[in-house]
Simulated scan of single mutants.
Amino acid sequence: MARFVAVMVQAVPFLTLGVVLSSAIAAFVPAGFFHRVLPGRPALAVPVAGACGAVLPGCECASVPVAGALVRRGVAPAAALTFMLASPAINPIVLVSTFVAFPGQPEMVWARLTASLGAAVAIGWLWIRLGRTEWLR
């Protein structure tokens, strides 16, 4: 029971953040906004969406609802998936934590950033080649 409560206490704030952000995207962001901001070709939109994952300070609890809102707003599923994978791995909180965990080794921060972003972008590009929209239902 204590583990359940601990997980809930840690996850609920981030889940709430994600739900609030996804609701804000649905309510306040015009439908054509992402078509103007992201490149038109999904292969180019994937790395841009991955880099945008750095601005969401949260775990996957926050990035999953936001990625769903992005898809509903017309963002290519591969780009939304890349955002969803990159956000928990390259956000400022994680990078600062990595810096604190490895004092005197700033290369670890850069290694984490590049490896995580590279993996997320690779998965996004893989989705473009092999993914199917019906899997999202």
Rank of each mutant, 00 (worst) to 15 (best):
P88Y: 00
F99I: 04
P47Y: 01
S87R: 04
A80S: 08
G40R: 15
V96E: 11
L56F: 06
P77E: 10
G68E: 09
P77M: 02
A101F: 12
A86K: 02
A49S: 11
P92K: 05
A69T: 05
P57Y: 12
P106F: 06
A69P: 06
C59T: 11
S87G: 10
A111D: 15
A67L: 08
F99C: 14
I90C: 03
V96Q: 15
A62I: 04
P103M: 05
V46P: 06
P42I: 02
V94T: 12
W110P: 12
F99P: 07
P47G: 01
R41Y: 09
A80P: 05
V66P: 02
M108H: 12
G74Q: 10
A49T: 04
A78M: 05
P47E: 06
G68W: 09
A80C: 07
V66I: 09
G58A: 10
L85N: 01
V100K: 14
L44T: 07
A89F: 05
A86D: 05
R41C: 11
A43P: 13
E107A: 11
A76H: 15
P42M: 07
G53D: 02
P42H: 03
M108W: 08
P88F: 00
P106N: 10
S97R: 13
V48C: 02
P39Q: 09
A80M: 06
A80F: 01
V48M: 09
P103Q: 04
C52H: 09
E107M: 15
A54H: 08
A86I: 02
R112F: 03
V100M: 11
W110M: 13
P42W: 00
G104Y: 07
V46D: 04
R112Q: 08
P88W: 00
R73D: 11
L56R: 06
A54W: 08
S87T: 06
V109Y: 08
A76P: 13
V55P: 11
L85E: 00
P57I: 11
P88E: 00
V100Q: 15
A54R: 10
T82A: 04
A45F: 00
L81R: 01
A45I: 03
S97D: 14
G50L: 01
L81V: 05
V71P: 12
A89P: 09
L85Q: 00
A111V: 12
G74P: 14
W110C: 12
G68K: 08
T98A: 13
V46W: 01
G74V: 08
L70Y: 03
F99M: 10
A69D: 08
A79P: 10
A76I: 02
P103I: 01
A76T: 08
I90R: 02
G40V: 06
I93N: 05
V71C: 12
V100D: 12
S97Y: 10
R41Q: 14
A43E: 13
A89G: 04
V75Q: 09
G58V: 03
A69V: 02
F102Y: 13
L85V: 00
P57E: 13
I90D: 00
F99G: 13
S63L: 05
A49P: 06
L44F: 11
G53P: 07
R41S: 15
P47C: 05
R73W: 14
A43H: 13
L81T: 03
A101Y: 14
F99A: 14
V100H: 11
V46G: 01
T98Q: 13
M108F: 11
A76D: 14
A79D: 07
A76R: 06
G104F: 08
R41W: 05
E60H: 09
